[in-house]
Each structure stands twice: as structure tokens, then as C-alpha cells.
């Protein structure tokens, strides 16, 4: 499933980050690489962006970016 659909508070693991552009690259540089544990913390009041926890810190991203991240529970 994609990160966008991961319910808040559930532990998951990244299996793939799809794409080749600079945004994908930046996502991986920020530590979102296959194998890492992630959790969705919350969604912003207007429905976007979302806050995730990865490698012990909080990262905000738009659903657009989260769509490219595949996770498994």
C-alpha cells in the first residue's frame, strides 16, 4: 500500500520509493529509504500535508509525495 493510505499511528516499513526526480532523491536523502520504519502521525487541518515519523524525527510532506512511497505493515 502507499504511505498516503497508511492509518495514523500504525507502524510500517518502507518497501520502495518510486520515481527518479529531485523530489524522490530528496525524500531518500531525508532518510526515507527502503527498509526504514515509518509512522503517519497526523494530517494537517485542511487535509494536506501529512506528518510522518522516520528515523526518530518528524517530516511533513504533501500527499503527492507520500503517494510515491510504498509501505508494508
Amino acid at each position: 500500500m502507499i504511505l498516503t493510505n497508511l492509518p495514523a499511528g500504525r507502524d510500517a516499513r518502507v518497501i520502495a520509493v518510486n520515481g527518479t526526480g529531485p523530489v524522490t532523491r530528496r525524500l531518500m536523502e531525508m532518510g526515507v529509504v527502503p527498509g526504514v520504519a515509518v509512522q503517519v502521525v497526523k494530517t494537517a487541518p485542511f487535509g494536506d500535508p501529512i506528518e510522518i515519523r522516520v528515523r526518530g524525527y518528524s517530516l511533513a510532506m504533501r500527499k503527492n509525495e507520500a503517494d510515491s512511497i510504498e509501505v508494508s505493515l
Binding site: V23, L27, Y57, S58, A60, R62
Partner: peptide, 10 residues
């Protein structure tokens, strides 16, 4: 549309 990747620092 600009990528929005932002750390929320403690």
C-alpha cells in the same frame, strides 16, 4: 507544484 518536504523540529 513545489515539493513540500519539511522537517518539523522538536
Amino acid at each position: 507544484p513545489p515539493a513540500f518536504l519539511m522537517e518539523l523540529p522538536p
